[in-house]
């Protein structure tokens, strides 16, 4: 009996670092953020003005919607690119190629996002590598600027999130018994019906985890967007940054933070409902 209790207590001790981590670095700041968002900038009395400001200033709603739509779009695009890659790596390739490709996907994440973004700039700028190669090949005769477009933001975001989409999908495809695919073919299924009815439903949880992660990362991105986006790149995170750093308006910034958090939670919840996925199952 004593042994059991001791063992149980020991296990609890192991949890303490994580609980501290979550409690101090996640829960507490968010509680503080939540309280701040309902306080006046001066005096700290209760107010809803910070939220009202968001809905009254069309600038913020516009930027917010833009950020949300971009995040959703890039998440879908990332899924579209990652799924075939994950499928090929797990189900088609031999061991050696599998390891090689996996490495190719992981390797870019050994450098920071900042450096990744700078690398993209070297590639995409008017006097950059791609423009040069196109001219060398004779496809164009003058420099072309690829930077500072919305599409550059999308490319950058997709790139920075591919890993977080591919790995969970690979993980779930790994558990798919190949004989299920064969059985589908055997029963008259073709490529698309097998994809639709067998493979995608099986990979559903992985797709969900990947999409949630990528969506959150996109929504909260700052570096890639500002560096690659140029003059039209205002992202909601930058608006939050401005509130805290430029305007010294913690309360407004907190309200924006709470709005962003609430939106992402609700959005993820709705998507889970629509796709009939269970978060515990997905995770």
């Amino acid at each position: 009996m004593w042994k059991r209790i001791k063992r149980a207590r020991g296990l609890w001790l192991l949890l303490i670092p994580m609980l501290l981590w979550i409690g101090l670095l996640f829960v507490l700041p968010h509680v503080k953020l939540f309280i701040l968002s309902f306080q006046e900038r001066r005096g700290g009395a209760f107010t809803l003005d910070n939220y009202a400001a968001f809905f009254h200033k069309s600038l913020y709603t516009k930027v917010f919607i833009r950020t949300a739509l971009f995040s959703i779009f890039t998440t879908l695009l990332t899924l579209l690119i990652s799924f075939p890659a994950a499928f090929i790596i797990t189900k088609v390739l031999g061991k050696k190629m599998k390891a090689l490709l996996l490495l190719a996907i992981v390797l870019p994440y050994w450098v920071s996002e900042l450096i990744q973004a700078f690398t993209w700039m070297v590639l995409f700028r008017e006097t950059g590598v791609i423009s040069y190669v196109l001219q060398y090949l004779g496809i164009t005769h003058h420099n072309i600027e690829f930077l500072y477009h919305n599409s550059t933001i999308v490319v950058g975001l997709v790139y920075t999130s591919i890993l977080f989409m591919t790995i969970p999908i690979m993980n779930s495809l790994d558990t798919l018994d190949d004989s299920l695919i064969e059985a589908s073919y055997d029963l008259g299924g073709d490529f698309w019906s097998t994809m639709r009815e067998i493979i995608i439903p099986h990979a559903g949880p992985g797709i969900m985890v990947g999409s949630i992660m990528v969506f959150m990362l996109n929504l909260g991105n700052y570096v890639t967007v500002t560096l690659l986006g140029g003059k039209n790149s205002l992202w909601f995170t930058e608006a939050i940054y401005n509130q805290f750093i430029v305007r010294f308006n913690q309360n407004q910034g907190s309200a924006f933070g709470v709005i962003l958090l609430t939106f992402s939670v609700i959005f993820v919840w709705i998507v889970l409902k629509i796709t009939k996925q269970d978060l515990t199952e997905a995770m």
Partner: peptide, 15 residues
């Protein structure tokens, strides 16, 4: 995956 995520967030914070 976790390592990559960690690096990623660190980069966000630092940059």
């Amino acid at each position: 995956l976790l390592m990559a995520l960690g690096l990623f967030l660190a980069a966000c914070g630092g940059g």
